[in-house]
Design a protein around this nucleic acid. Structure first.
Lengths: 96, 96
DNA sequence: CATGGGAGCGATATAAATATCGGCTGTTGG
DNA sequence: CCAACAGCCGATATTTATATCGCTCCCATG
């Protein structure tokens, strides 16, 4: 668990919003044609209003902090919240 | 039902073999990572030993004769036997 | 014997989503 | 004030399966 990377990743409102959306995909991504069990498709997050390249960078930040898991299927990448890492991080916060 | 196109499509052993394989996908395409309910992925048919471009042409012939149905998902195309057309064709054979 | 069509191949094009790059801006620490 | 850096964008690269192109070969029909 890269504590530093996690804190940096959480230091941006859009990335926090993405993590929040991923708590209840079925509430926020009803328009997705792929089954939500596979995760949420990267393109779905462009609803935050930023460009594709920027969204891709935000997702990469979340992923390298291991706050999300990814699964590639062909041209698509699907994202899920990584509650394991998040729980471990939350636990480690008690040290602060 | 394009009688002529169907006869031309059936006039090649590889295309007939493809149609036969599609009668029981679960017997012949166990290696496919996609669910077989979506159909059989085009690339699977390269097992006939021909090149990708040739296989693609054979599949296009079958498809334009409506002997198979296709479903595209991203970069993949999935094929199913079109038993409806085949039945109609079989019925029309009684005219010969 | 010519020729047109079907079959085959390698090479290249296409398509679609995502990733990366280069440049610009705004902010912050020294 | 300057340097570093995060964020942003448009443009371009990447990836992977499939489609198309240009060419050759072979056979059958005229």
């Amino acid at each position: 668990m890269d504590h530093d990377a996690i804190l940096k990743a959480l230091a941006h409102p859009v990335r926090r919003e993405i993590l929040n959306w991923l708590r209840e995909p079925e509430k926020h991504f009803t328009s997705q044609e792929h089954p939500l069990e596979m995760g949420v498709c990267a393109g779905q997050f462009e609803r935050c209003g930023l460009s594709q390249s920027t969204v891709s960078a935000h997702l990469a930040t979340l992923s390298s902090a291991d706050l999300v898991t990814t699964r590639r299927l062909g041209q698509w990448v699907f994202y899920k919240r990584n509650d394991e890492t998040i729980a471990a991080f939350r636990a480690s916060l008690s040290d602060i």
